[in-house]
Amino acid sequence: MNNANVRIKAIYNNYEAFINALKVLSSKKELDMDVISPMPLHDVEKLIPQKPSGVRWFTFFGGILGLIIGFAFPIYTVLDWPLITGGKPVVTIQAFIIIAFELLILFGAAFTLLGLLFHARLPRQNLSNYDVRFSGNSFGFVFSVPERKINEMKNILQDADDIITDKLSTESGRIGNESR
């Protein structure tokens, strides 16, 4: 993908046309393209299979961390100054279970958000590889190809409603930067 210096944005209003084009494009492994749609599409999932998302590990790790803190912190505070209250023993595990459970969920949710932001490369504003109509009701592709392949791409995308091509100034203008 070294000299990919032309970016192509294809916008489809008609879903069948979009899927047919996708079938063709998906066979080209070297294309690092974004398939953009206003809603999650399962057909895309099937055509471009992806690994199960890494967000899961964030949640798992966050949960475990919350659980450990939920137990360690109360026990530390109680042992720091062991004040006796009522008939309960100084280290009351039953009470700390509830604290641990709450922190498990709190850290779990927080790390899930971090995981999502990390994996989906948010909150990076990458709106140049994007078109306003994608948030309406149209689907489309955004990818970059070297100069010579433009017309080949064009006839693949010929029944798209709109195709926008523009030269990329620098080499680094990669499109599919959220590859993971």
Binding site: L83, I84, T85, G86, G87, K88
Partner: peptide, 17 residues
């Protein structure tokens, strides 16, 4: 009370045994 119902519920250790 030895097993004081008021001590277990005070959130800030204002009442202890």
């Amino acid at each position: 009370c030895e097993i004081a119902p008021c001590e277990t519920v005070c959130p800030v250790y204002a009442t202890v045994h």
